[in-house]
Write a protein that binds this DNA or RNA. Structure first.
Lengths: 345, 345
DNA sequence: GTGAAAGCGCTAACAT
DNA sequence: ATGTTAGCGCTTTCAC
């Protein structure tokens, strides 16, 4: 026998039929223990392994999970979503799936461009990270593929989602600043249309309210386009240009916080002495900038793992239960707040 | 017609045979322009797309490229290899391939564990990042799959490889320190068995030699197990514990450089005033630590892209040309060397 | 240039 | 519990 063995070879050598061998291999149906054992023996002897394509064609499954990310997140190699992606890769292997990555633009027009793995029927389920066009989501729905959203939710919860506990995170961050005695706490936000970010903003306002701190609109920067390092710098510029004099800043994510730190340093301000800063996400960099950044840790790999578990559940169980998971967060106190300025009112 | 169209539907509607349609779709063989156009018209009308599994079964191709990474690199989410991986994802989509990621342990025993995509014939070519067991490489060879190595090379160049120009990088780094007036330049290395690292070490020694600087063995730490941040810290400890008093340090990679910076700071030494430091790799963090790290930039995404191009070449051309690419490097001068201490001999 | 026919290797009814 | 029989949707000789 020259070429690699097929299920036929196994059946022949075991003196059984194709279907019996198939049942054993897929661990399905009822096969007597003796028969099963003899099949497995031959499988071992021939070191037989089913071919993915053949399986796929016959069973209409691919063994793949599609991971959809927005173009900008991917091209920037965003440390946040990259981590989530790596988390899915990790978990996928445990469930014997592979992850197929693709990116999509802001807009979605099915006549224009559709992720290839959807057209080719090359995925059994989809994980979507971050915000994408809702048209795309309904398109995928129409294909009957299970979808799990990560760090994004739609108005009506028709899909399983893995979300950050943004409300709690925002609350923890602001409470931390309050506990340090701060009262003039600014908010540095970006594109607040993303549900994760708007929730952090809401938590900020709520926490201050609860504490009886007057909300000052000049302390809130909420229309910076990009929630990036550059966006953080420019938001900080605008904040101080407006004459605001906060003693603490809650940045909507670490990237903005880092940009903000950069700007404050350039103004000769000392952190946390003059201004304390809290970020959100706990990206790798946060622990390495000077001063090390106090932030709200998000378990990014964990989110990816859970997303895979959910989508695998939907694929295998064929059920349509919608499960929304809020992954807990953790306040990580570091040097950007630790020796906080004293309250001044 | 309820379900998605097959090549049959296209053939029928176009009044042609399956094979003709297939030829058009695959852009192969000779089909008259009119026929071709009429096929494409029907394809558009039905919005037909071939199914990957069916194609794969018939043509014995998968449309996937396997990416093999060592377990430790992956689990640590090593920023270096992660970037290379993202580079491959990026380029793969351009060539209509998907990347399937897997990890392998240090040892390879085909009777023990073989990457699933190899057993399932689910990849058309392989990219290997970093050092893996040579047994694994020969095993893949025996399957007849093209291999491209990234940041690793074997004694005899039987495989295409995408390599860093480590020699030039090491030379640039040390020359930079020499130009700043340093003479007592230490080397902080890790597991020198990795060809990339040993080459950096060799370049270090050669450059000092060329400059007529005496090589002092107490200035060379070359048996630290891990080339990690922790490894850098411990290597730096040992360096100074031995009584060495360098004015500059060339660390074999940024992770070690960062660990070294950490140790120097804890000793109260000022960088670059007391000791200047150069790293290698230019991982993201390097630009964000304090002081910002002078380093040798490696174009990691670029390496991933080139690797995909090479493996796609081998897959499509079916040729066996071995191409070794040395990706250029770039010295990035930052604060960890910029106001260097003065030469003292 | 185009068509007919044979299979790629497997799964999934349906029988038995 | 195991076997028989059809395909899954495509590519690929080989005729014509």
């Amino acid at each position: 026998m020259k070429h690699r063995p097929t299920i036929r070879d196994v059946a022949r050598k075991a003196g059984l039929s194709l279907s019996t061998v198939s049942l054993v291999i897929n661990n399905r149906g009822y096969v007597s223990p003796e028969t099963r054992e003899s099949v497995l023996k031959v499988v071992r002897e021939l070191s037989y392994h089913p071919t993915r394509s053949a399986r796929g064609l016959a069973s209409k499954t691919s063994g793949n999970i599609g991971f959809i990310l927005s173009e900008e997140h991917f091209s920037q190699a965003e440390p946040f979503y990259t981590r989530i992606f790596l988390g899915t890769e990790f978990e996928a292997r445990i469930h014997n799936f592979y992850i197929l990555l693709t990116t999509v633009g802001d807009q979605f027009d099915p006549d224009q461009y559709v992720p290839r793995f959807l057209l080719e029927r090359n995925v059994d389920g989809i994980i979507i990270a971050g915000k994408v066009s809702e048209k795309l989501i309904s398109y995928i729905d129409s294909l009957g593929l299970p979808i799990v959203l990560v760090d994004y939710e739609m108005k009506r919860a028709l899909h399983s989602a893995v979300l950050i506990d943004n409300w709690r995170g925002g609350t923890l961050a602001v409470e931390h600043l309050l506990a340090l005695g701060h009262r003039r706490i600014a908010f540095l936000g970006g594109d607040i249309r993303h549900p994760s970010l708007s929730e952090r903003y809401a938590a900020y306002k709520n926490t201050l309210n609860q504490a009886g701190v007057h909300l000052d609109e000049t302390f809130e920067i909420t229309e910076e386009k990009a929630t990036s390092v550059a966006g953080g710098t420019s938001a900080a510029e605008r904040l101080f240009a407006s004459g605001a004099n906060p003693t603490a800043i809650f940045a909507v994510n670490d990237a903005m916080a880092i940009g903000c730190v950069r700007h404050l340093k350039s103004r000769g301000m000392r952190i946390p002495h003059d201004v304390a800063i809290v970020g959100f996400d706990d990206i790798d960099m946060s622990a390495h900038i000077e001063p090390r950044l106090t932030t709200v840790r998000v378990f990014k790999e964990e989110m990816g793992k859970i997303a895979v578990q959910r989508v695998v559940d939907s694929i295998t169980a064929k059920t349509n239960i919608v499960v929304t998971t809020h992954v807990p967060v953790e306040l990580i106190v570091r040097e950007s707040t630790v020796s906080a300025a004293h309250a001044d009112d």
